[in-house]
């Protein structure tokens, strides 16, 4: 009887010790996760800022002509800012907004409004991703609250999807009459887009967010197991 009691208390002690050990490991991991969050969401903030600037300042769509030596072969182009200006003013025929009027609106009219709308959504989503990732870092450090960080992962995913749509619309302009009419069927002419770089960056952003989320969920599962 006495032996049984001794065995039980030893088992309880062992359990307690094991739980304490697990808790210590958990807290260590939690600390590590916070560091990881700072790095990953810092990277997301930086990547979303770069992607945002690239969306605004580089060419959403351009006609590349290998026969041209100037401007890296970019014969005509429309940047993100020009698309937004055209969208806000409702004027796609102005000469003030890069080359949007000719040839893009002239020969690929149906694609210009969707491209402008997607550019706007993309800019808004990237801006929100940037803000949420910064808030995520702030809340994770100050209040151990990870909800903003996880929300920014959702926005990073949406940005990635929008970037795919924007790139598809931009490249679909080859189905308009730009190449056959404006380029006179010249095989040296092709439709290209700098949004490829934005897509790569937003994929990296999404990767960071997904990795952070997976690590967070793993830790949460461990916490549940301990308690």
């Amino acid at each position: 009887m006495k032996n049984d009691t001794n065995n039980n208390s030893a088992e309880v002690l062992r359990d307690k010790k094991a739980r304490e050990e697990k808790m210590r490991a958990y807290l260590q991991e939690k600390k590590g996760l916070l560091k990881l969050f700072l790095i990953l969401f810092g990277a997301i903030a930086l990547l979303s800022l770069i992607t945002l600037l690239l969306t605004l300042l580089t060419d959403v769509v351009y006609v590349h002509n290998t026969a041209m030596t100037e401007d890296g072969g970019r014969e005509v182009s429309v940047g993100g800012i020009a698309f937004l200006q055209a969208l806000f003013t409702g004027n796609f025929t102005s000469a003030s907004y890069d080359d949007i009027a000719v040839p893009f609106y002239m020969y690929a009219k149906d694609y210009c409004s969707p491209a402008a709308i997607m550019t706007l959504f993309s800019v808004i989503l990237l801006g929100l991703t940037l803000i949420l990732s910064l808030l995520g870092i702030l809340f994770a450090v100050k209040k151990q609250n990870y909800s903003f960080s996880l929300l920014s992962t959702v926005f990073a995913a949406l940005s990635f999807i929008l970037n795919i749509v924007l790139l598809s619309i931009a490249l679909s302009m080859k189905n308009g009459n730009i190449l056959s009419t404006y380029c006179g069927g010249n095989p040296a002419c092709s439709i290209r887009s700098d949004m490829v770089w934005c897509l790569i960056l937003s994929l990296l952003m999404l990767g960071c967010g997904v990795y952070a989320t997976v690590r967070f969920l793993q830790l949460k599962k461990k916490r549940r197991q301990i308690s």
Binding site: Q85, T89, N91, T93, S94, A95, S96, Y97, D99, A101, V102
Partner: peptide, 22 residues
């Protein structure tokens, strides 16, 4: 930023684009 262009004073930088647009 891009609207309100009532007058067009073409220069070396804008000549081709505005004329093509016209």
């Amino acid at each position: 930023s891009g609207c309100g262009a009532e007058n067009y004073d073409l220069n070396e930088a804008t000549f081709f684009r505005v004329m093509s647009n016209m």
